[in-house]
Amino acid sequence: MQNSHSGVNQLGGVFVNGRPLPDSTRQKIVELAHSGARPCDISRILQVSNGCVSKILGRYYETGSIRPRAIGGSKPRVATPEVVSKIAQYKRECPSIFAWEIRDRLLSEGVCTNDNIPSVSSINRVLRNLASEKQQMGADGMYDKLRMLNGQTGSWGTRPGWYPGTSVPGQPTQDGCQQQEGGGENTNSISSNGEDSDEAQMRLQLKRKLQRNRTSFTQEQIEALEKEFERTHYPDVFARERLAAKIDLPEARIQVWFSNRRAKWRREEKLRNQRRQASNTPSHIPISSSFSTSVYQPIPQPTTPVSSFTSGSMLGRTDTALTNTYSALPPMPSFTMANNLPMQPPVPSQTSSYSCMLPTSPSVNGRSYDTYTPPHMQTHMNSQPMGTSGTTSTGLISPGVSVPVQVPGSEPDMSQYWPRLQ
């Protein structure tokens, strides 16, 4: 039975679970980093996980050691009161100082060594604690504590007292930064006198190289990059290397530039699409467009005044059976039934097929058609009795279509119309 579990990581490298990497692998990681390889490249070359490479390099940059820390136990506290007071002093002298600059000053002034120097995250935590204590304490208590930490007896009751030896409130920041720059020169002199001055200088240079600022491109470089971006948004590694040799930039910087440029292009394309949609959409909808001609068919113009009344309900007709019959029939052209047409008796099958359309009241044959006459024609229609054979009435077949029909004066039988409509 094995005491430890061995495995293979996602890159194909072998590791022992819970145990640190061998010293030979750690040394190779540092050597590759000094030669300029990126952590992701080191991870692929040595088949070590990216997190492990970053952790080893980060500890090497901070402490200069590649040895693993002790497994188990607690780390001794490195942010001692003396170190905290120095950090507060540096922050007062130059409020814009960075944590890694404070760390360098602690090393250069001999406050800490490589073994007990606090990390950048520890210094940031100390600065946050100082800021929170400043908010919790009152103004007087804060000034007393700062005077105690600074070891001075001057008056701290006013704002300019934060910067000793100065009279203009805006000047101390520059003086403090100048003092810090002077301390940086002392850093070089002190570290050069040490035993491991060369190694420390190499480590600091490598650290500065990794902690780079934003790349500033010249106009020629920007023009070359934009020209390549117009050709393709995704250049391959050969195109990037050719462009890197042409404009004297690292291939990694060119790759990052193209990634950022593609993101910018997507944002601009989104804005262009929004403007295009806004320009195509009308600002207001016309009133006429809300009524579609496919839904509402136009009603033909009436030929006679009587045809303006298109349904039985508008003429005072309360018989719903006839109203439904007229509205359900398709529109037909106007025609006239003459008196000489043969009077065919209704076929029983045809009569039964339209039995649902006729009223059940037996008085329908005896009703006159003056009910369908509009009010303004009552006088004219009353002067001509319906009993004469020459009287013409208008029957409504569908809305908007008038059918003048000659009705025999002897017997106005409704059943004569249905064979004609089939």
Rank of each mutant, 00 (worst) to 15 (best):
Q2N: 14
N3W: 08
S4A: 13
S6N: 09
S6P: 09
N9T: 05
N9Q: 04
Q10F: 04
L11I: 06
G12M: 03
F15Y: 14
V16Y: 14
N17C: 15
G18C: 02
P20V: 01
D23Y: 08
S24K: 11
T25I: 07
R26H: 00
R26C: 02
K28A: 09
I29C: 03
V30W: 03
E31F: 06
E31G: 11
E31C: 05
L32D: 00
A33Q: 08
A33R: 14
G36A: 02
A37M: 13
A37E: 08
R38T: 03
P39Q: 15
D41T: 07
D41A: 07
I42T: 02
S43N: 00
S43F: 00
I45M: 14
Q47G: 04
N50P: 15
C52M: 01
V53Q: 00
S54K: 02
S54V: 06
K55G: 06
I56M: 04
I56D: 00
G58P: 00
R59C: 01
R59P: 02
R59S: 03
Y60D: 00
Y60E: 07
Y60V: 02
Y61C: 08
E62C: 06
E62Q: 13
T63H: 04
G64K: 06
G64A: 03
I66N: 04
I66S: 06
P68Y: 03
A70K: 15
G73T: 02
K75T: 05
K75P: 02
R77L: 04
R77C: 01
R77W: 05
V78P: 03
A79G: 05
T80G: 05
P81F: 06
E82K: 13
V84S: 06
V84T: 08
V84R: 10
S85T: 11
I87P: 01
A88P: 05
A88S: 10
A88W: 15
Q89L: 09
Q89T: 09
K91H: 01
R92N: 10
R92K: 14
E93K: 08
E93V: 07
E93Y: 09
E93L: 10
C94V: 12
P95Y: 11
P95I: 08
S96I: 01
S96F: 08
S96A: 15
I97W: 08
I97L: 10
A99K: 03
W100Q: 07
W100R: 15
I102N: 00
I102K: 00
D104H: 09
D104I: 12
L106H: 00
L107I: 08
L107Q: 15
S108A: 12
S108F: 10
E109M: 14
E109G: 12
G110Q: 14
V111D: 10
N114D: 09
N114P: 13
D115L: 13
I117M: 09
P118Q: 00
V120Q: 05
V120G: 09
V120N: 15
N124G: 06
L130G: 10
A131K: 15
K134W: 08
K134R: 10
Q135E: 13
M137R: 14
G138F: 14
A139Q: 15
A139N: 14
D140V: 14
G141P: 15
G141T: 11
M142L: 11
Y143W: 09
D144F: 08
D144H: 11
D144I: 09
D144V: 09
L146M: 15
R147V: 12
R147N: 15
M148I: 07
M148W: 13
